[in-house]
């Protein structure tokens, strides 16, 4: 069973004073996420990632389309107890202490009174805030709030979690921890759906990713598949500074550095290139297939239509 199934979800906003113009925040989106997956939802800022998450959480209403979460209609109140949600740049009732906030959320999620205290303590420990449970949230730093946000999302032991930009505001150590936490969640059998514009996070973590840009799905698949399809090129390095003239015909891009030459050429021309080097008696140093990064894929998917902005790697 798919943990999440998005069926043609679409959101159009009316903008302008008379609300005559319409803005497509999300074009009809179809997507399925399997149970137990870590699914990355990628795209530059303003691509429609947050809109999608808000639609799924019932915070905004779709223009058309629907979704199923864990087999339930997504508007079904019953499904909400199985969901954890971390909004983008979360902000919480700052007059509460971290422990009070989590206890309140536990109440709302229907965690039994007997278990509440234990759960709160456990989750505070899990997100690395065991000592500040009694501190009012107004004294928390951005990174600490992000941790509280993650804590409240997993507090009630949900089957599927939705994280909107979970790494933002965290230092490198924090990112590492959150990454580990997501992997733990996966091991516990939970489904993790997270949005990010940070590609390296997605690359390291995700089973599958979807790429969205300008409200439109641009690509979806297993990371390895996506990346291998991009280039199909090999890098050939040999000693010397001489470049055989026949290589030009093989679409090789050559760079001379010191006493070696580096050439990148299409995979299918690899044998011909090696033959050419042999004929010239040049000494081959290495032959490596060029594995594209997710970033390359990203750039390729987005670039034709618009310059990529706000993508950090």
């Amino acid at each position: 069973m798919a943990a999440l199934e998005i069926i043609g979800l679409e959101k159009t906003y009316s903008v302008g004073f008379w609300r005559k113009r319409s803005k497509h925040a999300l074009r009809p989106l179809h997507l399925a996420v399997e149970e137990g997956e870590i699914f990355g939802f990628l795209g530059p800022n303003g691509a429609g990632k947050t809109t999608t998450l808000k639609l799924l959480m019932g915070l905004v209403f779709p223009t058309s389309g629907s979704a199923r979460i864990l087999g339930f209609e997504w508007t079904d109140p019953k499904v909400k107890a199985q969901i954890g949600f971390l909004p983008e740049q979360p902000y919480f009732y700052d007059y509460l202490t971290a422990r009070e906030l989590l206890a309140y959320y536990a109440q709302l999620s229907g965690v039994p009174a007997k278990e509440r205290r234990r759960r709160v303590d456990a989750v505070l420990h899990r997100v690395g805030l065991p000592d500040v449970g009694g501190v009012q949230l107004r004294k928390f730093s951005k990174g600490m709030l992000q941790r509280v946000g993650i804590a409240q999302a997993i507090l009630h032991n949900p089957r599927i979690v939705f994280f909107d930009e979970p790494m933002s505001g965290l230092d490198p150590m924090g990112r590492r921890e959150v990454r580990d936490l997501m992997e733990q969640l996966k091991h516990e059998g939970k489904t993790v759906f997270f949005s990010t514009h940070v590609l390296s996070d997605a690359e390291a973590l995700c089973d599958r990713v979807a790429i969205i840009h300008q409200g439109e799905l641009r690509g979806i698949g297993v990371v390895a598949d996506l990346t291998s399809n991009v280039h199909g090129k090999v890098e050939v390095v040999w000693q010397g500074t001489r470049v055989p003239s026949s290589l030009k015909a093989l679409e090789a891009e050559c760079h001379v550095t010191g006493d070696t030459v580096r050439a990148v050429l299409p995979e299918e021309n690899q044998d011909a290139a090696i033959d050419a080097l042999r004929r010239e008696h040049l000494r081959l140093i290495s032959l490596i297939p060029v594995r594209a990064s997710l970033e390359d894929y990203f750039v390729q998917k987005l670039a034709p239509r618009e310059k990529v902005e706000g993508v950090t790697v």
Binding site: K54, M57, K80, A81, F85, Y91, F92, Y93, S109
Partner: peptide, 14 residues
């Protein structure tokens, strides 16, 4: 405004 509502309404709260 402060989006505190998001984490409330994503729970089983109508």
């Amino acid at each position: 405004d402060r989006r505190t509502l998001y984490t409330v309404l994503s729970r089983p709260v109508r």
